[in-house]
Design a protein around this nucleic acid. Sequence first.
DNA 1: ACTGGCACTTGCGCCTGGCGAGTGCCAAAG
DNA 2: CTTTGGCACTCGCCAGGCGCAAGTGCCAGT
Lengths: 345, 345
Amino acid sequence: MSEERRLPSEDRRLEVLRAIVEDYVETQEPVGSRALVERHQLGVSPATIRNDMAVLEEEGLIAQPHTSAGRVPTDKGYRLFVDRLSQVKALTSPERRAIETFLAGAVDVDDVVQRSVKVLAQLTNQVAIVQYPSLTRSTVRHVEVVALEGARVLVVVITSSGRVEQRIVELESTPSDGLLSDVRSRLMTAAVGQRLPEASLRLADVIGTFAPADRPLVTSVVTTLTHVFSDERSDERVAVGGTANLARFGRDFDTSIRPVLEALEEQVVLLKLLGEATTDPTVRIGLETGTEGLPGTAVVSSAYGSSEQALAMLGTLGPTRMDYPGTMAAVGAVARYVGRQLADG
Amino acid sequence: MSEERRLPSEDRRLEVLRAIVEDYVETQEPVGSRALVERHQLGVSPATIRNDMAVLEEEGLIAQPHTSAGRVPTDKGYRLFVDRLSQVKALTSPERRAIETFLAGAVDVDDVVQRSVKVLAQLTNQVAIVQYPSLTRSTVRHVEVVALEGARVLVVVITSSGRVEQRIVELESTPSDGLLSDVRSRLMTAAVGQRLPEASLRLADVIGTFAPADRPLVTSVVTTLTHVFSDERSDERVAVGGTANLARFGRDFDTSIRPVLEALEEQVVLLKLLGEATTDPTVRIGLETGTEGLPGTAVVSSAYGSSEQALAMLGTLGPTRMDYPGTMAAVGAVARYVGRQLADG
DNA sequence: ACTGGCACTTGCGCCTGGCGAGTGCCAAAG
DNA sequence: CTTTGGCACTCGCCAGGCGCAAGTGCCAGT
């Protein structure tokens, strides 16, 4: 209970916890005191370990599935392990190169996202979740207004992350080419380089700079643009992959795998799982995911984007019994590469 | 063996097969002779049914999992059932309305596809697969060429199915507005209304109609368009949903569910599963799916599109032990509505 | 051609006992 | 006070045995 002064025995107890987590992650089976001293150089006898285990269990860090079984880490135990007993382990250089070359082959934003999901799933052997770059967090790179046949006009926006969004607007009358190019250039000046929410405000001001006769047209175009800028649907797009890795969960489909599959089909749940933007990989274990009905699962997530501005989230979902250091490394690495990839276009 | 003259007993045997399929689909358990006469008005005793069953088994239409169990239809049995013993059953009008209203809310092509997957999965309680409208099978509705900053040009294509594809082209020099609009109008005339493969040919001819000095520019644009028109990647896009319904498969994750999940992540496999374009819902059972490693699964698929031109495929994947008439009805209905939806845009 | 009867097969659920892994406690030693 | 060996105890797991129930195939009779 006295957390301030670290007793020698306290040190070993934590070492025991680490050993339990590592062994359990590897073997997927409750780990007993004998196996522990055999696999690790702890320098003490099983009996001593048992005493330590009793304390760890009292503190709620480990538990036994049933009386005559070994110990298993609790969510609280994993938490402590992640916070104080582990450090993100570096990826091997083949792994780094694999990520890099695989992502480099992407031809557009959709492709980047899809490839990220795949590479993340393969790297971690878990379910990978990647959110598409947020519209509201990127800036406007280009605005285009183009006459189609009749009174229809095509409005195109290109964002800093390389996404291209377009809408077709039905006008009341056919606009002249001169007016259109005028509209385009004034919209460009107002919006380019702005974040999307601010761009919406600037665009609203542009309407007033036109002659009253032209305002209906300009208003239609601006309204459309504003819709594009604040389209929540595209902000919520998420790609999922590696569902076959769910085998790593329990063997019982209905109680452990099915709810996960169901959750993975709900965008809302996915976004909640990814959580708040954080630069470094964040781990949320069990209830910390904020999602009920997914016991025994943990999420490792991170924001990706440029150094100044986070674009969106990505991460993995797996059993709490996972290789945290490795997963955090993979999530971090993929986030970095994806961010870099989307920084240029 | 004499297929020509239908004996009365032959009739009853088929009736028995139908009863077996229907009961097995409903109960998921091997069906015995006694249960059969109790649940259906067959007017004969269990012993007679047993004789019929023996014949059906000899013909390879049913089988028993083990000696003391009831009978289960074989793939061949399901095949016969689908071909000769069942007819597509009409959807209830609430179901029809559900499809219609749900699809009507879609705002663009992506949305239509996503909603179709969802509605199809819910309707059938199976895994739903919907291919995005094929580019190569649609026609060109509009071509746009727009100057961006510097020597960059945005090329936009809108297809008859409402898809909008765009590319950015880097030119060697900044083109004049006049030239660009000239290019645009000639490309439009050449391509609009054509199917994409033919449009590619027509566009190639357009290059020659320009002055030699302008040809490099026109060539760049045309090349880009040709790439867009024949982009296999977008032709192969597929959406999947309802994976949680895999519960209806076996209980054993590793042997029956995992391979399916793996297959569902491979675009190539998905496209193979959907099969060749057919207007009416087609059923492929077991090996007929042409995909190994998916025993016990059947696919119901159909093309969707306008009456003249199929746009792409959609369908469901489920255990061979499925409600074929209902599934075929659902697939057919969704295909019709989606086709209609994408016919206008 | 159909039926009732009967012997036979066999999977499944249930119980049982033995085995082994792992624990907790304790008394003794460092 | 910590560590250790010893020991009794608790359970989950597995194999074997048993009875049950379902369902079949065959045969003799109508």
